[in-house]
Design a protein around this nucleic acid. Structure first.
Length: 497
DNA sequence: CACCTGGTGC
């Protein structure tokens, strides 16, 4: 090879490397300068360099220029097509990516594993189960479904299309599972609401040889948050600290942690994590601000929102509309307080959600296990003891506080004498009963934490107020709308919810 | 050469 040709090839490789660096670091200006230089030097029609240009322009948000480069090419290979498809997806147009896929097929260029995973991503983004299945089918026929990256994309495609079972069976048959396969499956379970399954998978992952990364933790923390599994979440928090995963600099982990503590009614811990973040993302602000609002602490919520507005952080439409909701609630509460006299006559607090089709369900975490209860549920092996302790609590409350049931909250289609029984077996009460029987008190916090899928019933609300008084412990009840923190006979919601 | 995975809420 003569020196001249060698230096030309060397030059070409230097351009390519620099372009890839520009793509990675989103350096549009520098990328454009390289583009100009290589056109001048006669590299304008070079296949590899043109591909790199498409990638660079796509990543930097200049899809029009990427398309121009693509259109002017004398020949295009699978990389050119795939790079442009990715560009469309990255710029928010997955449909165009799918159209390109069919154009590519017509042009006679054969797709590879990268093309398939890109297309599966587009299907997932579009919620396109039908076309996703077709792509999956083609992958099977061409043998690409056994390629790890493609398999991962199939898992993600099915879970994005709401087909968690199909995602799971893909995960099962994957010949090689890597970190991303596990992460995709855990995220899939979490998004689909199968948080317990997500946690089971996470534990399996910990037991195995697999590494864990920030994606694993964010998804798993989200699962803990949705479940209210604070013990498990705490362990992950501790693991993050000992494992050197600094959430002070990792936005996603910090947000997930704040969300966990907020959803468990631990605003103090949420605030602590928040204060440790170096660059506070608008999402972490949102989580904390709404957390305070949902706990009934409107003052702190408003104050934080004011701080956010005074900071240099750009607020988004999401937090603005959320704050509208907070202001609306605040106004309602103010009105509600003025209307207190009426509230006694008006069936205030009648639980409209008990009329809904959805069955009331409560749960509580005891020794890292989540126990679920439905209203009138006697499936739990400790049911008898639960009833005993609840009766005991009623007796003490009557004696010490003169508490009697407000029977009006009971279901209406039952015999009068059995209304007391109905009230006793509301799911939130059963969950609390179990916590009392099993010592579900979180010793370090002196709190019992219960979750309910519907609004907490007015009678149970009174009952828990009483419990917090006579037992001298706090209760945190997260219902469908908000938090109730009961302490010393009072609730943070001020009885308006 | 490129491709896959994550966070706030209603």
């Amino acid at each position: 090879m003569n020196r001249g040709l060698f230096s030309v090839l060397n030059e070409r490789q230097k351009f390519a490397n620099f372009l890839r660096f520009c793509s990675k670091s989103l350096l549009l200006d520098q990328g454009m300068q390289v583009h100009g230089a290589l056109v001048k030097m006669g590299f304008g029609f070079d296949l590899m360099l043109s591909n790199d240009l498409i990638v660079m322009y796509g990543k930097c948000g200049r899809l029009g220029v990427a398309c121009d480069v693509f259109d002017r090419m004398l020949e295009r290979n699978v990389v050119s097509w795939t790079a442009l498809m990715c560009g469309h997806i990255q710029n928010g147009n997955p449909l165009e990516s799918l159209l390109l896929f069919s154009k590519m097929a017509l042009s006679g260029v054969k797709p590879n594993d990268f093309t398939f995973s890109t297309n599966l991503k587009a299907c997932g983004l579009l919620n396109g189960l039908y076309i996703g299945r077709q792509v999956h089918d083609t992958c099977v026929k061409t043998g690409f479904d056994t390629v790890n990256v493609v398999g991962n994309s199939i898992i993600d495609m099915y879970s994005k299309c709401g087909r968690i079972n199909e995602a799971a069976s893909m995960f099962e048959v994957l010949p090689v599972r890597n970190l991303i396969s596990w992460n995709a499956m855990i995220a899939g379970y979490t998004v689909a609401g199968f948080c317990k399954k997500a946690l089971v998978l996470f534990r399996k992952m910990q037991e195995g040889e697999e590494f864990l990364d920030e994606f694993t933790f964010t998804s798993t923390l989200k699962a803990c948050s949705d479940l209210g599994a604070i013990k498990e979440g705490n362990q992950i928090h501790a693991f993050l600290i000992t494992g050197g995963f600094l959430y002070s600099v990792n936005t996603a982990i910090a947000c997930a942690l704040i969300d966990l503590y907020v959803k468990c009614g631990e605003l103090f811990m949420a605030r602590r994590v928040f204060s440790h973040i170096e660059e506070k993302h608008v999402i972490s602000w949102t989580a904390l601000i709404l957390g305070y609002a949902q706990e009934g602490n409107l003052e702190e919520s408003m104050d934080l929102f004011r701080q956010l507005r005074e900071s240099s952080i750009q607020v988004d439409g999401f937090i603005l509309s959320s704050m509208m909701g907070v202001f609306a609630d605040f106004a309602l509460v103010q009105q509600g307080k003025q209307m207190h006299a009426f509230a006694i006559k008006v069936p205030f607090g009648v639980d409209i959600s008990k009329l809904k089709k959805e069955a009331g369900c409560s749960w509580v975490e005891i020794a890292k296990e989540i126990h679920f209860f439905y209203g009138g549920d006697d499936m739990h092996p400790l049911t008898e003891k639960i009833h005993e302790i609840l009766k005991e609590m009623e007796r003490r409350m009557k004696e010490e506080l003169g508490y009697v049931y407000r029977v009006k909250y009971a279901l209406h289609d039952v015999e009068e004498e059995s209304k007391m029984e109905n009230l006793r077996v509301h799911s939130e009460k059963l969950a609390i009963g179990l916590a009392l029987v099993c010592g579900g008190l979180e010793e370090e916090r002196k709190v019992i934490r219960v979750f309910k899928n519907l609004r907490v019933c007015g009678d149970c609300h009174e009952f828990i107020k009483g419990l917090s008084k006579i037992l001298k412990i706090a209760f945190v009840v997260r219902d469908a709308n908000r938090f109730h923190r009961f302490e010393d006979g009072l609730c943070s919601c001020g009885d308006y919810w």
